[in-house]
């Protein structure tokens, strides 16, 4: 059951990622990405990570991608260049590089992954929010503070960049 749900969501995620990368309309790109993030959240939920699934939807679909759509609509970008159009040599090199990076990652990770290992979502019975919160306030307190500084810096930077000089 879990395994079938995972497979269905995985296939759908790949299909919509392809659409997000190749389609010519930026709005369709962003919407496909909304679907991708939705299916990733569904995968997290299926694996028992309910808190992560909710955060994924709230932050990515609810805020980041809405911001993307806002900018696309503000700049009124209707249609952009075709996927892989332009200089053919560079495009071929780019594609080769992307696949090479992917191959490198797979090769690097290959030794780490257990071939037979597998897990059931039962590992997180009782919800993951409480243990995540506890760890955030103990083991990972410093990174947590740091990320808030990063966010504030980004906020100030974004305002400074987008402001009209007057």
């Amino acid at each position: 059951m879990v395994i079938w749900a995972f497979l269905v969501f995985a296939v759908l995620a790949v299909v919509f990622t392809t659409l997000a990368v190749v389609h010519r309309s930026p709005v369709v790109n962003v919407l496909s990405l909304v679907m991708v993030f939705f299916f990733l959240a569904a995968i997290y939920a299926v694996l028992g990570m309910d808190f992560l699934a909710a955060i994924q939807l709230i932050v990515y679909s609810g805020a980041v991608l809405v911001l993307f759509l806002f900018v696309i609509m503000l700049l009124n970008i209707r249609r952009v260049e075709r996927f892989g159009s332009g200089r053919p040599v560079q495009a071929a090199l780019g594609a080769a590089a992307a696949i090479a990076v992917g191959a490198l990652v797979v090769w690097a990770v290959r030794g780490l992954a257990p071939v037979t290992g597998g897990v059931t979502p039962d590992a997180f019975a009782g919800g993951t929010a409480a243990p995540i919160g506890r760890m955030l306030m103990t083991t990972y307190l410093f990174p947590f503070e740091l990320i808030s500084v990063v966010l504030v810096a980004a906020l100030v930077g974004a305002i400074a960049l987008a402001r009209r000089e007057s």
Binding site: V14, V109, A113, G118, V119, T120
Partner: peptide, 20 residues
């Protein structure tokens, strides 16, 4: 309950990474 094999999740991750 049948588990989801970890390599499958990693494979999905690799495919998405290359597409990105």
């Amino acid at each position: 309950m049948i588990a989801v094999p970890v390599p499958w999740i990693l494979a999905l991750s690799a495919v998405l990474f290359v597409l990105g």
